[in-house]
Nucleic acid binder design. Structure first.
Lengths: 115, 115
DNA sequence: TACATAATTTGATGATTGTTGAATTATGGA
DNA sequence: TCCATAATTCAACAATCATCAAATTATGTA
């Protein structure tokens, strides 16, 4: 994941309704949920939900598929993993492999940042 | 970390200048950098930088301390770790301990989400 | 075809965001 | 005290975001 996509994904999750929406879809697994059910579950208007769904789709965090009259949305786990990997690698100063990431005591710094 | 703080942190990182700023501070470790140096390094105006610094401070992702005439900013690794933990726990359907988080094949779903 | 359902799209509106330049606060030195 | 440096705060502005209601598109059924 590059910086641009990371920013888009972070922005998509940085909103109350969208974060709740994504968390809901994550708990539903690949089966996903139709838009109508999501709107009902979250208590948001259909048009407002469409707006938020579009942003999450654009960020690649969820995908859409049609089942008859319903549009089913489901979480895209790979993108979430890629975002976590990006943050771990680029915002903690350590490799994703390093378990206790972001601990300055373990040497969390680049090569001569003050230069 | 609760949902509200997570949204604030996500929003703080979801912006080009702020993400670059945070990444820069992460590479500098606890020593941090003075505002002037950051502005120069990122090529942003001082007033604009102050705006972004304030948001990161408010999100708890960086801290400020004074050294003579300079204000030194440094990354707050604990908050970043807390954010990663929140995302892993709440947006992947698995515990943070689960290494290959977010993989639906490993059973990444809640208890009867369709109910 | 005509009708109903599921969801999106559009347009309007108020709120928030990010940038710029000028003014202000805080600190240190002559 | 007076001046210079470091940085923030303020005011104005354009751009983006989130919400609502109305209109539109897509699908399935009688």
């Amino acid at each position: 994941m590059d910086e641009k996509r990371a920013i888009t994904a972070l922005g998509a999750l940085a909103q109350e309704t969208r974060l709740a929406l994504f968390r809901l879809l994550v708990t539903c697994g690949p089966a996903g949920l139709p838009a109508g059910t999501i709107a009902e579950r979250l208590g948001v208007q259909p048009s407002s939900l469409s707006f938020h769904l579009a942003q999450l789709v654009h960020a690649g965090l969820i995908t859409q598929r049609r089942a008859s009259r319903q549009l089913i949305y489901s979480a895209e786990y790979g993108t979430m993993n890629a975002l976590l990997a990006y943050l771990t690698e680029n915002c903690c100063g350590r490799d994703a492999a390093g378990a206790p990431a972001c601990d300055p005591a373990t040497g969390c710094r680049g090569k001569d940042p003050a230069a």
